[in-house]
Design a protein around this nucleic acid. Sequence first.
DNA 1: GACTATAGGTGTACGCTGTACACTTGTCAA
DNA 2: TTGACAAGTGTACAGCGTACACCTATAGTC
Lengths: 221, 221
Amino acid sequence: MTKQTTKTRETLSSTRVLQAAVALADEAGLEAFSMRGLAQDLGVVPMALYKHVANKDELLDGMVDIVFSEIELPSENLEWTTAMRRRATSAREALQRHSWAIGMMESRRPGPANLRNHNAVMGCLRKAGFPFEMAIHAYSLQDAYIYGFALQERDLGFETSESAGEAAQRRAQTIGALEDYPHLVEIATKLPESGYDNAVEFAWGLDLILDGLDRLLHPGG
Amino acid sequence: MTKQTTKTRETLSSTRVLQAAVALADEAGLEAFSMRGLAQDLGVVPMALYKHVANKDELLDGMVDIVFSEIELPSENLEWTTAMRRRATSAREALQRHSWAIGMMESRRPGPANLRNHNAVMGCLRKAGFPFEMAIHAYSLQDAYIYGFALQERDLGFETSESAGEAAQRRAQTIGALEDYPHLVEIATKLPESGYDNAVEFAWGLDLILDGLDRLLHPGG
DNA sequence: GACTATAGGTGTACGCTGTACACTTGTCAA
DNA sequence: TTGACAAGTGTACAGCGTACACCTATAGTC
């Protein structure tokens, strides 16, 4: 009975605000994410948030760092390719959960999780034997792919949430408008019945990249 | 003398609005791009725009399609790798010119330039000999890389616009805060003096990808 | 030439946003 | 008991996209 008297709302804190913010952005999307909405979710008046975060911009910084914290760090005990594959996969999954973060991962003031992550990845590549400039190339290539894939996955959204019926209907009307574009028609007709799977697609490209990098690392092998 | 009497402001049109919108977004960024600001640039009251575009969302659709129209279509006469390299390079350049478009290229209602472009790329891959599903893989991989690279280039911005002095100063203070992250320190110190160049970086990754795809297309060669 | 329809531009207003600033309230130390 | 300080509130303002009613100039028809 030391703390809560009856009905006292649990007091706010910056981490509580941050977590609620991530949850709200996850379900409402970035467009509909507002300070006022967040305050309402927390049962509090909008201005109360400003006692715990400086402003919306800084709040977003913190939210992005939470996403970074959910990305697996490359393990020191694994072969570099599998370590990189695991962190890439977990990054894609984190961006799937928090798709509002996709365009913001590298555009905001980096937080601790961000720094830890980047440092660990670069360390993994250097330890694998990549010379400095080649490690930069390898890092840039992998991250471009990861972020770009997440973007496509969010925007194109092949066969994700909509029902089969809706999808078929939309497809039919799309195809109607596509007469002049035979290769788009091919995509619209064949892709849905090809068992397309985003995770498989991601792994395919990632493997091609990692194979290419490994070949450069071990020219003879 | 048929049309303009003295001082009559040239009448608006949807293409004139669109072009002014792209110009404004180019220089002000997406954040600061508003219907009111656009109206002011055109010397007109905000609501006048709505006689020529349905709303801001549709305006953005049109702006994105303008960016698509600046991307080179793959030529039928070139080897597929060089055709793809050229369109990828021109896509990156277009996104550099119009960095506000980076997160929106595939997220909006596709316009004619978009459709033409995608159709031509898929056609190029199919004609090169890729079976359908592999063409999808190849397309997805390339676009993910292009969009992801553009994102990184926009956000990380190694040595772009800031003066050497500013850059050095910022770097020094960054390094100070980076003691616990040796590999980030290495990047912050070595990268600036390594003659890093975004165009080179982009080509490096692109070549690795195209090589990998070509190897899959011609397993024996 | 007079009449009318229509396209283009205007002015006002509403609900939304982030947040500055002054205020109250609840908790703990001295 | 007092006083400080942290947490939450209420009001207010400028900016946003845009609905709606209005004015005006041009074009077509009789």
